[in-house]
Design a protein around this nucleic acid. Sequence first.
DNA 1: CGCAGTGTTGAACCCGTTCAAGGAGTGTGG
DNA 2: CCACACTCCTTGAACGGGTTCAACACTGCG
Lengths: 254, 254
Amino acid sequence: MNTGNKTAPILPGGAVARQGDGSLEDCDICPFRHIGFCAAVLGSSMGGGPIRKLEGTARIRQHIYRPGDAPGRVVVLREGWAIRFVLTPDGRRQILSILIPGDMVGGEALIRDKVQTSLQALTPLTYCAFDVTELKNIAESDPGLVWTFVDICFAGREASEARIVDLGRRNAEQRIARLVLDLYRRLDERGLAEGLTIPFPLRQQTIADALGLTQVHVSRTMTALRQAGAMHLQAGVLEILDLQVLSDIAEIPR
Amino acid sequence: MNTGNKTAPILPGGAVARQGDGSLEDCDICPFRHIGFCAAVLGSSMGGGPIRKLEGTARIRQHIYRPGDAPGRVVVLREGWAIRFVLTPDGRRQILSILIPGDMVGGEALIRDKVQTSLQALTPLTYCAFDVTELKNIAESDPGLVWTFVDICFAGREASEARIVDLGRRNAEQRIARLVLDLYRRLDERGLAEGLTIPFPLRQQTIADALGLTQVHVSRTMTALRQAGAMHLQAGVLEILDLQVLSDIAEIPR
DNA sequence: CGCAGTGTTGAACCCGTTCAAGGAGTGTGG
DNA sequence: CCACACTCCTTGAACGGGTTCAACACTGCG
């Protein structure tokens, strides 16, 4: 039964979710129904039993989960951006991934009880969530779904390792250029880029915490990138002024 | 049929492997038969069809595979250490993982044709290898094996993300202390530590390339750690002199 | 209006790099 | 047995990319 606007807190951190009616019918019009996780779940739940889809929203800066929580759910972002991060003992933040619409998060809930990271909304957020127990049940009748998890996990690991190379061996200018190009590619794949212009809700402090820099240095470096004619950021919209220049700085062959 | 000492190159880079007789009988005496991947494969191949185990050796500094290769095999180290790394366009090296006996490498071959990294022996190496096609066949009759892949992949991703935090937010002393403690814990889990002493075949340049530092600075920092009474490295053997001091430096609660 | 969040800029500082020289250990060949 | 080459580690001095601290400007908002 669709509970309509009646809401109940189902995730730690105060994020609110409502339960769908299980038929997943609005997945039919979801722009992300053909990407990895959703496509696999939709395919599986057609053959086997249905899966309940939970829907949720989060306000800006709201936590979806924190270290030590046991969310028990896998989350797929539908609208808005989020970050997954950890805090060091001295209170500094390291962002592990920047999440855009269509991304899946929290896959570790499939094999771990508790998570060790925080998930926080960067913008107002709407998302779908799937109970891991139900996912495991579906996977029993459709082992192909597990391969989808393997696939998603390795893709995530490759992204992590690309970031390791950035942090270990590249300077601030290269790191920022590569972050921007990576986000541009991902947004473009999901139809969220307009030409060379993308929505860009990241603050300089957010970029700094993702790339192991300080906000002050991000400011200086982005000024340099703007003056080099590579890109331009204003009011949450980033425009790549010269893809070749930016790619050269990023050391990405094109 | 056991081919005995007759050897044939089966992996790129010149590493040599011989084919076992498929019965895996020497797994019975392998010290790593109870850890993740091997335990799962042994359990699966008992129920379903047998899997061929390939065995291989590599000399020091020898490549097992390189970027662009399609090894088509998953490797489990039996004796010796190895590194997985990439080279940046300007020729610098970033090590992505340091592998010790019992570790599984190359799981991406399960879902990718070509690998993007290099795998190189740090010491003389013996390893086992399993054909991914055969692994997939076994997984058809034992879906639990796929969950083992998910598990291993997420563990690898967690390790990668821990390294991201190190590179992004910790100084040289902390990075080295954490690397040493991580290796100590892993070696101890596999019964390869003697008290607080572990084999340590890493050169300073290797540590530098893993932690995003230079060899010169690793030298200075390790001298400082020695003078602080935290640890002592000589002739390929590392002794943790004061676990408390080292843990404090590493910011690991104990 | 006050205030919080964000970005810019300057100046001093420092962690780590770069360049360079030298020493210790090891293997090799004459 | 020694000369030589090679790898690895140490140490010094100068340099530089990035940090830290601080002041200020701009924006949106209650």
